[in-house]
């Protein structure tokens, strides 16, 4: 399916065409790189661009809460930066985000609150700023 079709799929449960068009524009504004590829088959995009499509697709549903599971996994470092910038942008749009990430340092840059999970148990929790300050401890945990 093309990029556009993927995005439209994200709006599956939205019935108002105006809302859909607005969401589409918002996503393309957020990810200019895929705006130019909207008729391209999504499978032919690069890893980073595919990730953008995936996130954009999730946003099409105008969610109250966005769940992101390791969005930066497997991406080149410059794309990782881009993804986190985008997450910050989404946060500014007022959408709540639950981000699961191994990349603790970058995640804490964009987050308000953080939980550290160790073999399924929450070992640390607190405002991101505090956790960042305890970075030395976290670096011990996460190396």
């Amino acid at each position: 399916m093309t990029v556009q079709e993927n995005l439209l799929l994200g709006a599956y449960n939205v019935t108002d065409p105006a809302t859909i068009t607005a969401s589409l524009e918002r996503v393309y504004a957020l990810f200019p790189r895929i705006a130019g590829r909207r008729k391209q088959m999504a499978g032919t995009l690069s890893g980073g661009e595919q990730q953008m499509v995936a996130i954009g697709r999730a946003l099409m549903a105008a969610p109250k809460l966005l769940l992101l599971d390791e969005p930066s996994l497997g991406l080149a470092p410059n794309l990782v930066e881009l993804i986190f910038e985008t997450i910050a942008e989404i946060r500014k749009l007022g959408c709540a985000i639950m981000l699961v990430e191994q990349n603790a340092s970058m995640a804490l840059e964009v987050a308000d609150f953080g939980y550290v999970l160790e073999t399924g148990n929450v070992t640390l929790a607190g405002p991101a700023a505090e956790l960042k300050a305890r970075r030395d401890v976290i670096e011990a945990y996460l190396g």
Partner: peptide
């Protein structure tokens, strides 16, 4: 159509 798209997806 959105259902058609959903079917393909």
């Amino acid at each position: 159509t959105r259902h058609g798209r959903a079917l393909r997806a």
